[in-house]
Amino acid sequence: MPDLTYAQLAKQSAALAKDVARSSEAIHAHAKNIADEARDTARIAESIGALRVDQATIAETRELARLMDGIATAATAYASAADTTAHAAQAAHDQNKASHNGIGEAAARSTVGRDIYQLDRTWLTQE
């Protein structure tokens, strides 16, 4: 039997495309959460400033907000790369379908049994 059939390839490429798309969506959600937390932390820094908390604490809180914003930006960039990967995976699945779907359908409709791969090759050499 062949190492990889059309049906297996189609199933694997579709699963890959879906998995990468789901992962990309999850990364976008995490990036949004981090950005929201960064904004909240910046608001907290302003609030504690109004309460006349020491300047070192306010500066540390602002620095934390700045770092969190940087992490959110990096996560968003990573999510954009994941989107590109998701599109590439979907394109690979679509190309596989366009290139091989007819062969897969013909093989599925074929009346030749699946046992052809277990054929005794010596029988073919006999006259």
Rank of each mutant, 00 (worst) to 15 (best):
L64Y: 15
A106C: 05
R22N: 11
A15T: 10
D40R: 15
M1H: 08
R114K: 09
I58K: 10
A91F: 05
R62L: 03
A42N: 05
Q55D: 14
L67A: 13
L51S: 13
R43G: 06
A45E: 08
A38W: 07
R114P: 06
R62V: 04
D54R: 11
A81C: 05
D3A: 06
A106Y: 02
N33W: 10
S24I: 02
R39L: 11
G70H: 06
L51I: 01
S110C: 05
Q12N: 12
A29T: 14
S80N: 14
A42Q: 10
S110F: 02
Q55T: 13
G49S: 00
R121M: 10
H100R: 14
A15K: 10
D120F: 00
T61C: 12
A56W: 03
H87C: 04
D69Y: 13
S24F: 05
A106V: 09
L119F: 08
H100I: 06
T122Q: 03
Q8N: 05
M68T: 14
I58F: 00
A74Y: 08
P2D: 01
R39G: 13
I48F: 08
A26L: 08
M1P: 07
A91S: 08
Q90M: 07
Q95G: 06
A91R: 10
Y78D: 12
V112C: 02
A45R: 10
A65E: 08
R121A: 08
L51M: 13
I44V: 15
A42F: 03
A42H: 05
A75F: 15
D36I: 01
H30E: 08
L64I: 14
E37P: 00
I71V: 15
A92H: 09
A89C: 12
A59I: 00
L16K: 09
A10V: 07
K18V: 03
Q95F: 11
N33R: 14
Y117P: 01
S13M: 03
R121Q: 11
H28P: 01
G102W: 04
S80E: 15
Y78I: 12
N101T: 04
G49H: 02
A108Q: 15
I48P: 07
V20F: 00
M68W: 13
A77D: 15
S110M: 02
L124F: 05
R22V: 05
T85K: 12
Q90K: 11
I44E: 14
T84Q: 06
A17T: 01
L124V: 02
Y78R: 09
G113H: 00
T41C: 04
Q12G: 02
R22H: 11
D40S: 15
E105G: 00
D3R: 03
S110T: 07
I116C: 08
R66M: 13
L16G: 04
G104I: 05
I44N: 12
A89R: 07
A59K: 01
N33E: 15
S47Y: 08
R66C: 06
A82Y: 01
A42Y: 04
A81V: 03
R66W: 10
S24V: 07
A21K: 13
I116F: 11
I27Q: 11
K32A: 14
Q55I: 10
T111H: 05
R66F: 13
T61W: 02
K32T: 13
E127T: 03
A31N: 13
L51F: 07
Q126W: 01
D69Q: 15
A108P: 06
D83V: 00
V53Q: 03
L51P: 02
R66I: 06
A35N: 11
G49C: 00
A82V: 05
Q8A: 05
